[in-house]
C-alpha cells in the first residue's frame, strides 16, 4: 500500500505542479488544491497505512487494532487550514479578475514595472551623468563652486 500511496501522491503532485505552472489563475488554484491533497496524503501515509478501525476507545476501554490517530488529527487540522487558504485564494482570483481584468498571470505585471523616467538632473550615477562628465572634461573649465557670499 505504501507504494500505491507514493505513486498516487506522485501523480497528484505532477498534475498539481503542471496546473500551477500554467498561466491561468484558476488552473493555479486547481493545482494548489491537488498539491494540498498531496500534503495531506503524505502526512496520512507517513503515519502508517494499515486497514484498521477508527481510533475510538471501545466500551471496554481497550484500544486494539485501530488506525494511528495522531496523523489523523494533523490531517484534519491541515484540511481546515487549507480550506481557509484556498477559499481566500479563490476570492483573490475573483477580485483580480474584477479589478485587473485578466486571470492570465503573464498579463499581471503591474506591480513590477519600473518607473522608467530617470531624473534629468538628479541621478547619482545614471548613464547620462557619465556622458555629461565626459563633455565637461573636454571643455576643461571649472566654474566657481563656492556657495557664495
Amino acid at each position: 500500500m505504501e507504494v500505491l500511496f507514493g505513486i498516487l501522491a506522485g501523480v497528484l503532485m505532477a498534475g498539481g505542479v503542471w496546473l500551477i505552472l500554467s498561466r491561468n489563475l484558476l488552473k493555479f488554484l486547481f493545482g494548489l488544491v491537488l498539491i494540498s491533497n498531496v500534503a495531506n496524503l503524505v502526512i496520512f501515509a507517513s503515519g502508517g497505512v494499515t486497514e484498521g478501525s477508527p481510533p475510538l476507545v471501545g466500551k471496554s476501554g481497550i484500544v486494539e487494532g485501530v488506525a494511528n490517530s495522531l496523523p489523523q488529527a494533523l490531517v484534519l487540522t491541515a484540511i481546515v487550514i487549507g480550506f481557509g487558504l484556498v477559499s481566500f485564494t479563490l476570492t483573490l482570483a475573483l477580485r483580480a479578475w474584477q479589478s485587473i481584468g485578466t486571470t492570465h498571470v503573464e498579463e499581471m505585471c503591474l506591480s513590477e514595472q519600473r518607473a522608467g523616467a530617470t531624473d534629468e538632473n538628479g541621478g547619482v550615477l545614471s548613464v547620462d551623468d557619465y556622458a555629461q562628465l565626459e563633455r565637461a572634461r573636454t571643455v576643461n573649465s571649472e566654474q566657481s563652486m563656492e556657495p557664495g557670499r
Binding site: 505504501e2 505513486i7 506522485g10 498539481g16 496524503l41 501515509a45 502508517g48 497505512v49
Partner: peptide, 18 residues
C-alpha cells in the same frame, strides 16, 4: 518539471512510508 516533482515526492513518500 511537473513530472520531476511527482517522481521526487512519490519517491520520498514511499521511502518514508517504508
Amino acid at each position: 518539471i511537473a513530472i520531476g516533482c511527482g517522481v521526487v515526492v512519490g519517491a520520498i513518500t514511499i521511502a518514508v512510508g517504508l
